[in-house]
Amino acid sequence: MKKAKRILLLLLVIALLGAGYAYYQYTRQPPDVKTEAAEIKTEAGELVAAFNNDEAAANKIYVEKIISVTGKIADIKIDPTGQATVFLESGDPMASVTCSFYDTEAAAVKNLATGRQVTIKGVCTGKLMDVVLNKCSIVP
């Protein structure tokens, strides 16, 4: 009788732990890239060249990683909806680095100017026409 109770209690604990873990997983937020440190630091030219030379290898190194990229601003776009995007020159006329910012960073992007050198942190999602960075913020 005592044994049965014990087993029951153990099962209950396991079930609770399982439920807790499931709840944690279910409500887990995507990482806040603004507050996390960059795993890799690179330059716009170097980043684009890496994807041009060997996309599969570059995907393994950079994609889904938080990286910081330094480069000269080629263009800035801020949508009426507040969506801010900065393009970095890479030396390759066909490809730049597209940096899509957190909507909350639009105000900071407004202070940037074309031609200026900047370091931007974000999550690399791969190469389309440009190498793309999501969830960007400016590295002070």
Binding site: R28, Q29, G126, V132, N134
Partner: peptide, 12 residues
């Protein structure tokens, strides 16, 4: 589009 560029509210 890059599929990895889709952002969700939940990480999972």
């Amino acid at each position: 589009v890059l599929i990895k560029g889709f952002e969700f509210r939940r990480a999972l």
